[in-house]
Computed example of a mutant assay.
Amino acid sequence: GKNIELNFLTYDSRNLPDFAEGVSSQLEKIGIKVNVKKTDADTEWNMLVAGEYDLLNTNWMTVQDGDPYGYLDNWYGKSNANYCGYKNDEYDKIYEALSTEMNEEKRKDMIEKLQQILIDDAAVMIHGYYNSNMSSNKSVTGANISVADYYWITTAIKPAK
């Protein structure tokens, strides 16, 4: 019997405002009013940390070092990075065991379980993964793309000699 109205915080990066508008449109079809507020990345981050949002979207590098352990900390119940206040005892137990597990196959299974818990609990909504391209020719050296990094322009890119 009570109208639901949510604020969706977003910023201009990799189509995030478009995703926010799309989610807003879908929710409004079922009677949930959504106010999309576009701000800059720093303001959004500060509001994320302060918990000043109902819905929020962001870009996040998930496996900078080839292992998502640090990224999965965002939903660990005792983490300072758990800005959404997510709590799941099974998730926490597996996450804590993951911190000391060194066997790659066991780690993979544990990570898949953690991801499935987040999906089952609808803790996050993944809009997608971005494909990237970089083109150069023999007049350029050092233009290499890392699969986990989107900061492509570096001091390593130089004219070829």
Rank of each mutant, 00 (worst) to 15 (best):
K93W: 03
E28C: 04
N35M: 04
N80P: 04
D73N: 12
Q64M: 11
D89V: 07
V34P: 05
D67W: 08
D89K: 10
M102Y: 07
E101I: 12
L55N: 07
N88G: 03
G51L: 06
C84L: 08
A50C: 03
S99N: 08
P68D: 12
L55A: 00
D65T: 11
K29S: 14
G77M: 09
N103I: 06
D42Q: 15
C84N: 10
L27A: 00
S99K: 15
M61I: 12
K37R: 07
G77H: 08
M102L: 15
Y86I: 08
Y69V: 10
N74C: 02
Y95V: 11
K93I: 05
N74W: 06
G77I: 05
M47R: 14
Y95F: 15
Y53E: 04
V63F: 09
V36L: 07
W75K: 02
L72T: 04
N35A: 04
Y86F: 15
T39F: 06
Y83T: 05
S79G: 08
Y95K: 10
D73S: 11
D65E: 11
L72P: 04
N82R: 01
Y69A: 09
M61P: 01
Y69N: 09
V63S: 15
D42P: 00
M61Y: 05
Q64T: 12
L56Q: 02
T62E: 12
Y86M: 10
Y69H: 08
W75D: 08
T62C: 13
D42F: 10
W45S: 13
T39H: 05
M102A: 11
Q26F: 06
K33C: 01
W75F: 13
T100Q: 12
G85Y: 02
G31T: 07
L48Y: 12
N57V: 08
S79P: 09
T62L: 10
K33P: 01
E104Y: 11
P68V: 09
Y69F: 09
G66A: 08
K33D: 03
K87I: 03
G77N: 10
D54Y: 00
D42H: 11
D67V: 09
E44R: 15
S99G: 11
K78V: 11
N57W: 08
M61D: 13
N74I: 02
T62D: 03
S99C: 06
D92E: 11
D40W: 01
A50P: 01
C84T: 13
Y69R: 11
A41S: 14
A41W: 04
K29C: 02
G31M: 02
V36F: 02
D67M: 07
N74Q: 07
N103E: 14
T58R: 13
D73Y: 05
E44S: 13
N35F: 01
E28Y: 00
N103L: 04
N80A: 10
V49M: 09
G70T: 12
A97W: 03
K29N: 14
Y71I: 01
C84W: 00
Q26M: 13
W75G: 01
Q64P: 10
L98P: 05
Y76V: 06
N88W: 04
L56K: 00
G85A: 05
K33W: 01
L27W: 00
I94G: 09
V49T: 07
N88I: 05
N46I: 07
L56E: 00
K93Y: 08
Y69G: 04
A50K: 13
N80E: 14
Y53M: 03
I32E: 04
